[in-house]
């Protein structure tokens, strides 16, 4: 059997603007059927990557294959990609029912009944102006509408950032249920800062920092490949030769090292501990932007806010 085609595969994807580079040499693979988290500080290039993947923007260099095709050259595969921008674009004066009618006109594939069923199940009125609904309800309307396209790939830009914890949980339940029902034929890539949500919902993650990919892979595998070593402050040369030291924190007598394992751990002077997702993410983010995260403030404000403004 041929290996399955990844839902997303990019090779050295780069996006330059006049003054700065928003995304640099980005090579990632997102397997079909996964729910992948796109993590990184603001301005790391997350929105840029999502916009490139859904064809809203053109790469300066490199290639992106989305569902096996180049987003800006294959409208038929783009029809199978759903994108939800951060601000949940809905027409505030229109009702959910109006949006369903409009979606039917604008999309090749459209399952309006699924939106009605989903919103009725959540007790969200179809006949009220969307602007009068709560933030959580609006997010559910937007998600139900994008799912009505029957997408094979869903790109979500910080979908739950503005929601309260309960609305967030309901939104994620709707999302994971849609993935369960699709039985492997729906892939999701969502950007988020909320590690606890990512831990429950995502089985794959991509970490961007300073416009570069720092990590990309199955969450469980990435966690298993890393360890935290705590031990006396001493020459870390032997550790660095055998493993990759992602981040080292040293106090007067103690060293704490986040390492990516390059083989078995042999030094008994260190106590090795499993790494949590939060430690892993913070370790890589901190290593990529030491000045900004050591409490010194951003070295270059433009670098932190970057293109996403």
């Amino acid at each position: 059997m041929a290996p399955p085609v990844p839902a997303i595969q990019t090779t050295r994807l780069t996006k330059r603007y006049r003054r700065n580079t928003a995304l640099s040499d980005c090579s990632i693979t997102v397997p079909e059927g996964s729910i992948s988290a796109l993590i990184g500080p603001n301005g790391a290039g997350k929105t840029t990557l999502l916009r490139l993947l859904c064809g809203l923007s053109e790469p300066s260099a490199g290639t992106a294959l989305v569902l096996g095709a180049s987003p800006r050259q294959a409208p038929e595969s783009l029809a199978q990609v759903g994108f939800l921008a951060q601000e949940m674009p809905l027409y505030r004066r229109m009702t959910a029912a109006d949006h369903i009618t409009m979606g039917a006109h604008l999309n090749v594939r459209w399952d309006g009944q699924s939106v009605r069923d989903r919103l009725r199940g959540l007790d969200i009125p179809l006949d009220r102006a969307v602007g009068t609904l709560s933030g959580g309800q609006r997010a559910q309307v937007a998600l139900a509408l994008v799912l009505a396209k029957r997408p094979r790939l869903l790109l979500l830009d910080e979908p739950v950032a503005a929601l309260d914890p309960l609305a967030r949980r309901h939104f994620l339940a709707t999302l994971t249920e849609a993935v369960a029902v699709a039985e492997g034929s729906l892939t999701v890539l969502l950007s988020s800062h909320l590690i606890a949500d990512i831990e429950r919902v995502c089985d794959h993650l991509i970490l961007l920092a300073a416009s570069h990919v720092q990590l990309c892979g199955e969450t469980d595998e990435l966690l298993a490949e890393h360890q935290i070593l705590v031990g006396p402050k001493k020459d870390t040369g032997p550790i660095e030769r055998a493993h990759t030291v992602v981040q080292a924190t040293t106090t007067g007598k103690q060293s704490t090292l986040l390492i990516r394992l390059g083989g078995p751990l042999l030094d008994p002077a260190y106590q090795a501990e499993d790494v949590s997702l939060e430690e892993l993410v913070l370790g890589y983010m901190g290593a990529a932007a030491p000045a900004a995260y050591a409490g010194l403030g951003p070295a270059d404000p433009a670098e932190l806010t970057g293109e996403e403004r």
Binding site: I35, A173, L175, T176, E177, V179, A180, R200, C202, D203
Partner: peptide, 16 residues
């Protein structure tokens, strides 16, 4: 079922 668990606790279906 996987779908029931996922709808109730919002975890990745692959986790279940």
């Amino acid at each position: 079922t996987v779908r029931e668990v996922v709808a109730a606790v919002a975890v990745n279906p692959n986790t279940v």
